[in-house]
Design a protein around this nucleic acid. Sequence first.
DNA 1: CCGACTTTGTGCATACCTTCACAAGCGGTA
DNA 2: TACCGCTTGTGAAGGTATGCACAAAGTCGG
Lengths: 270, 270
Amino acid sequence: MVAQRGEGDEVVTTTPGTSAAQAAPVVPEQDEVVVRERARAIPEAAVARLAVYLRVLSGMVDQGVTTISSEELSAAAGVNSAKLRKDLSYVGSYGTRGVGYDVEVLVSHIERILGLTRKHSVAVVGIGNLGHALANYGGFQSRGFPVAALFDVDEDLTGVPVGGIPVNHIDDITTVCVEREVSIGVIATPPQAAQAVCDRLVSAGVQCILNFAPVVLQVPDDVEVRKVDLAVEMQILSFHVARRADEASAEQAANDLINGVGVDRVVIRP
Amino acid sequence: MVAQRGEGDEVVTTTPGTSAAQAAPVVPEQDEVVVRERARAIPEAAVARLAVYLRVLSGMVDQGVTTISSEELSAAAGVNSAKLRKDLSYVGSYGTRGVGYDVEVLVSHIERILGLTRKHSVAVVGIGNLGHALANYGGFQSRGFPVAALFDVDEDLTGVPVGGIPVNHIDDITTVCVEREVSIGVIATPPQAAQAVCDRLVSAGVQCILNFAPVVLQVPDDVEVRKVDLAVEMQILSFHVARRADEASAEQAANDLINGVGVDRVVIRP
DNA sequence: CCGACTTTGTGCATACCTTCACAAGCGGTA
DNA sequence: TACCGCTTGTGAAGGTATGCACAAAGTCGG
Ligand SMILES: NC(=O)c1ccc[n+]([C@@H]2O[C@H](COP(=O)([O-])OP(=O)(O)OC[C@H]3O[C@@H](n4cnc5c(N)ncnc54)[C@H](O)[C@@H]3O)[C@@H](O)[C@H]2O)c1
Ligand SMILES: NC(=O)c1ccc[n+]([C@@H]2O[C@H](COP(=O)([O-])OP(=O)(O)OC[C@H]3O[C@@H](n4cnc5c(N)ncnc54)[C@H](O)[C@@H]3O)[C@@H](O)[C@H]2O)c1
């Protein structure tokens, strides 16, 4: 077991001399304060799933469901129920054995872990096809990610309101981002401009970036980038089509073989 | 070692009686034909990266680069070079020791593995904000994923050309998809409609789906779904913001502690 | 209050992925 | 040809994530 669970362990201190008591896997060195935080212990994959559970649970709340079992929730989220329970155990133990989880309690705890108790203002850069769609999309606002600023290099767009917010010129990015406390930057510019835009966002103090441009961004260690890359998604799907076709033709070939030789059955091994 | 590499091993057969020769990890049962295909052996994570390498390499071709080392390519793709070499080894051994990889050769082999030698026609369902952006996006066409059909339930849209293609009514989905050999369906409808649209795509024979609607789709085993979920991406970023803030405040608290007690240094353990 | 039943939380085995480290192989050079 | 330096390809190790299976812990009916 790696994760330290339980409510009051955000900060564990070991005053020099008084050590040795801890059942920690790593022995703290002499004269050292060990600060361990729960957050870091949650695997990234689990975080992504928690966000999905949260959405499913929100739907449940709307339907008036008050309690849900891991089996039901996992089915709705399309995952294995053991995995779901393990994911929830990172958040804490808020279920009742024999009953399940209280939906509202779970929602509030997942929200806390995901940091959704704070507001996260979003800036969209590049108000073209995609930028327009994003700016007009209501799904951000409603989930606690208000779009607070829009930027484009095109001067014809400057001042034009899109989705209720006037577009700013890219040159004002630092001032506006600081002023409106932007914490997430969304890049929807052509690929050529993406790295430059990213650099400007970073120097404006933005530490989280969602990138739609098909380029690999280079950023400092303290900046978190996530990319949405449709070409990659398509190609992964294409790979699966190809794999399926290969399998089918292999099976076909094997079956032909059977008809020639005297074999009983064909097994496709993983 | 699990992966069977080399060119001519797509179909390995063991005729009954003549077995025992194979150095396979699993002993084939009596009277059984074992068909093993290379494709399945490539980990999903590697496939996603191969798509990224492919794009970087395409850029290299345009710049006139003919040869590239794993070190250079991995830097450009933002991954560890050992990982890159292992990923490429799934594709085959096409590098030259002491030199690197021939860019064009690599491109063609990755394209082959990803199944990009075939054309994959795409249908977009739900021509709203996002659907318009997708239909107008040139990036699909240029990468071998022509948008071949658009669908919407809104009759005012029927027949209206978007990005050069007239919108069809959703009720014609089966006929049109079959006719135009659609192999990938993109769902850009409101969440409420997504599952129904998905079902219709599946019964039209579409086996690959890219879903933008924030719902978990239920599909048969032989259908591959990938989702693009902006809310989840945002929430993962939010989690990192929260984690960073926690770390900062923990360190702050610890430093305060130091000033009170007599401690030498603070270590934040992973 | 008890016992049957349900469901959580988690130890453990397994599978998967990443990273290191280095032998093998290749081109260039003398 | 023989050597040298560079880079690939890949065992092996380590780490992370997944899924099973079950004890622990609760509910609920009697
Ligand atoms: N449209 C889609 O559906 C879609 C899908 C997947 C990926 N993408 C990617 O998203 C990005 C945007 O796509 P799009 O179709 O909206 O393109 P677009 O050409 O319609 O819009 C790009 C916008 O960015 C602005 N821009 C250019 N340089 C800029 C800079 N330096 N600073 C600020 N703004 C700048 C342009 O003025 C324009 O308004 C591209 O990288 C594209 O590859 C788009
Ligand atoms: N707009 C964005 O930037 C954005 C971002 C992330 C996710 N999404 C998601 O993408 C989806 C579409 O978003 P949008 O902003 O384009 O919505 P939208 O309301 O602008 O467009 C939805 C379109 O789907 C059509 N539609 C509804 N029911 C349909 C059905 N049964 N069959 C076919 N078409 C149908 C509607 O007529 C409309 O044209 C939503 O699920 C949304 O959550 C959108």
